[in-house]
Amino acid sequence: MDTNAFKATFDRTRNEVERALVGQTELVEHALIALLARGHVLLEGAPGLGKTLLVRVLGRVLSCDHRRIQFTPDLMPSDVIGGNVWSQPKGAFDFLKGPVFAQFLLADEINRAPAKTQSALLEAMQERQVTVDGVSRPLPEPFLVMATQNPIESQGTYPLPEAQLDRFMFKLAVLSPSHEMETAILRNHLAGFDAQAIERLNLERVMTPAVLLEMQEYARRLRVDESIVNYIADIVCRTRGHRSLYYGASPRASIALLHGSQARAASRGRDFVIPDDVKALAPAVLRHRIGLQPDAEIEGMSTDDCVVEILRDVRVPETIAA
């Protein structure tokens, strides 16, 4: 694997996904970057914007198996990770794997399940394994969780705890398509596109799980200059003492920003990271890892505004500005 091959594969993958998912270029790119950086993604957006379709198409194009869990208030942890069931013929307990044992997992409306069920994913997302009755079972590689939540509804939802949020590398906003994109989607459907039957699209299987793992390894080996490391640390540290923030980002955020930047650099055909990579991914990495002060909320600030403010305060490496 070299830089050019990496970029070529990345571009082909993105193009294939965008054949099915129209008008979500940035979302697709960030999702792929998270995948290549071995991270998980939290998608926030209204229903019907193509979140489920994205996961299915990704699974198809990357030749990975994918599952979907619809989170509900009565969902139990064992419904996610599986559990031991008594096998009469064997006279022993057998482990019945839950849907988490998939390479791509779509946790739909994750905030509809109580914290207990949400926490079932903690170990899976971080350790890439699940433990039931003291026995740990590794999850298949690659493993990507894409969770969705609806920002509008608040009745009957359980906000994700900070520890859970921190496990997600990116939080991406799924934006409504523009008028132009909306018409493109409609034309696709007129031409016979069916989101429930993506097989008919004849999407090319651009890579295999083995190639994906190789790309993940390659991205982690990319050169990161000392000044870039300092830049990342500066950005994340500033979230901790910011006047508008109740709490700042953890070191896990720094690590996510580092690996995300490496993956982005590789996707652009570079074998080194530049400040632009860091700056481009900082909002996605930080927006769900920081909490606003109540008075900042009253003033109408968002976490994105805070991140932008922090980025404005931090000096870019090698800048010529005084």
Partner: peptide, 23 residues
């Protein structure tokens, strides 16, 4: 830096400490 200063003089960019080359 000479190129950026010339572009700044032409009003195409404004050199700031938070701006990357990509910006």
């Amino acid at each position: 830096a000479a190129l950026l200063r010339r572009l700044e003089g032409a009003g195409l960019v404004h050199v700031e400490s938070d701006q990357t080359n990509g910006d």
